[in-house]
Amino acid sequence: MTLEIYKEHILDLYKNPHNKGNLKNPTYEFSKNNPICGDEIKIQILAKNNKIADIKFCGQGCVISQASASLLTDKIKNLSINKIKKLNKEHILEMLKIPISYTRIKCALLPLEAVRGALENVRN
């Protein structure tokens, strides 16, 4: 049942996202889109001592990409950059706690891809 996707915790995040907005002086910044769906996300990271001091995302997309962005940004705040670089698909699925079908996996992974892109893309 795909309705399992639209669980309370996921819809709550969609309606009241965490860490949505902009940072004034990000160390890293990256935008990534998923052309098939039209999902778009921009990640901004403020790094201090190889750790993530603050992180924000903005953009638009489906429930899955939006919930994934909220959860991921929560999870990696205060984490070391080295640890973040090791995050993979399994971590994201575990975090979302909903069944993700083959066609929606791209939506779930978009925020992680944006974070990876950001960490390779120094802004200041």
Partner: peptide, 12 residues
């Protein structure tokens, strides 16, 4: 609402 979310719920 994102189109894919509409389509997914309909697909149920």
């Amino acid at each position: 609402i994102h189109q894919h979310d509409v389509a997914q719920i309909l697909s149920d």
